[in-house]
């Protein structure tokens, strides 16, 4: 079912390509469960472009962070492929004036969920994976021992199971038909609610245990499209020096909570931080808590309206709800 969508994506991109600098999309990675970003510059590269539930990466960060993408002909737009969640990062970047809406051409793709390869491997065992495809509500993987079928619910990324915005909120062209959201946003914070039911001591214990595994490789930070400080992150500044080189939980705790607080009311819950973590720490959950507060107190959801001003980026003397 994704062959058609890929075909349609390639055709749509081909039609727009002459007017664009580059189109950022996905291509096949090192095995059938992995995709990798691709920068399409000419029609000869179009056959690399793919769309499937393995296209996990949120590509919008490249528009801000990659010097090569930014240093192109300013008279032409940059094309970018986005899922529903990714499009919200674009909106947030537009709001914060990192990119201009009229500088980008958005290929929006309604998404039924992306596959978390680690969940697949856990259900395995799989050796020598030859192919993987999603058919309706199943994932079919062929490996050296034959075919294996998994229920999609068992292998989708955590963020996809609580997705309220599967359709791109901004787009210049839509690839495929809009899909029905799994949940309404008010009902998407079930995991946060379960955490809230625990005592403060238990919650602290949970995060200490989880964050103790952190390597401080900063994959979570760098994969975040809205972590825009890049080489100026306070986790690494030397003057002043906020974090030591110690590997204790307190350093890791401090980093992750600074990271989360810098994203309060900005995070669009694309889940890239959690996906990028080699230690599988559920770091998006911290940001979900902050977003739940933002939603309850300020009725604000990040990355939905390019014209809106994020509540923590403004000052309103008549603020209600606080």
């Amino acid at each position: 079912m994704f062959e058609n969508a890929t075909k349609q994506l390639r055709e749509t991109v081909e039609a727009a390509l002459p007017e664009l600098n580059t189109v950022v999309g996905w291509r096949a990675g090192y095995d059938p469960l992995h995709m990798t970003p691709v920068f399409i510059k000419n029609a000869g590269d179009l056959s690399k472009l793919e769309w499937s539930p393995f296209c996990v990466q949120n590509l919008s960060g490249y528009l801000v962070k990659d010097p090569a993408v930014r240093a192109q002909d300013p008279s032409k737009k940059i094309g970018i492929c986005v899922k529903g969640c990714d499009s919200r990062s674009l909106v947030a970047l537009i709001q914060e004036k990192f990119i201009e809406r009229n500088q980008i051409h958005v290929f929006g793709i309604p998404c039924r969920g992306t596959v978390d390869w680690r969940r697949v491997m856990k259900l395995g065992p799989l050796t020598g994976i030859q192919s993987a495809r999603v058919e309706e509500s199943r994932l079919v993987v062929e490996d050296a021992n034959g075919g294996h079928t998994f229920a999609l619910e068992d292998v989708l990324a955590r963020k996809c199971l609580r997705c309220a915005h599967p359709n791109p909120v901004i787009h210049d062209v839509l690839i495929g038909e809009p899909v029905t959201p799994r949940v309404a946003v008010e009902n998407s914070y079930g995991e946060v609610e379960r955490m809230e039911e625990q005592s403060l001591e238990d919650r602290l214990g949970f995060w200490k245990k989880e964050l103790d595994k952190c390597l401080r490789c900063y994959a979570c930070r760098n994969a975040c499209p809205l972590c825009v400080c890049q080489d100026r992150c306070i986790a690494e500044t030397r003057e002043p020096r906020w974090l030591t080189q110690r590997v204790g939980t307190s350093e890791k705790f401090l980093f992750h909570f600074i990271h989360a607080l810098h994203l309060a009311g900005r995070c669009t819950e694309c889940g890239e931080c959690e996906r990028a973590c080699p230690m599988e720490i559920p770091v998006t959950l911290i940001k979900e808590k902050l977003n739940k507060i933002t939603l309850e107190l300020m009725s604000y959801e990040a990355g939905m309206d390019p014209e809106a001003v994020p509540p923590l980026l403004t000052f309103n003397p008549g603020e209600t709800g606080l």
């Binding site: 962070k65 993408v69 994959a219 760098n222 080189q245 110690r246 080699p278």
Partner: peptide, 25 residues
């Protein structure tokens, strides 16, 4: 290198990457 996010995960999971820093804390 366009795709690279510039994080350090490749070096930290690597069995041969031996670079270190020294700090007085």
């Amino acid at each position: 290198v366009s795709q690279c996010l510039g994080c350090g995960v490749c070096t930290y999971v690597c069995p041969t990457c031996y670079c270190f820093t020294i700090t007085d804390e």
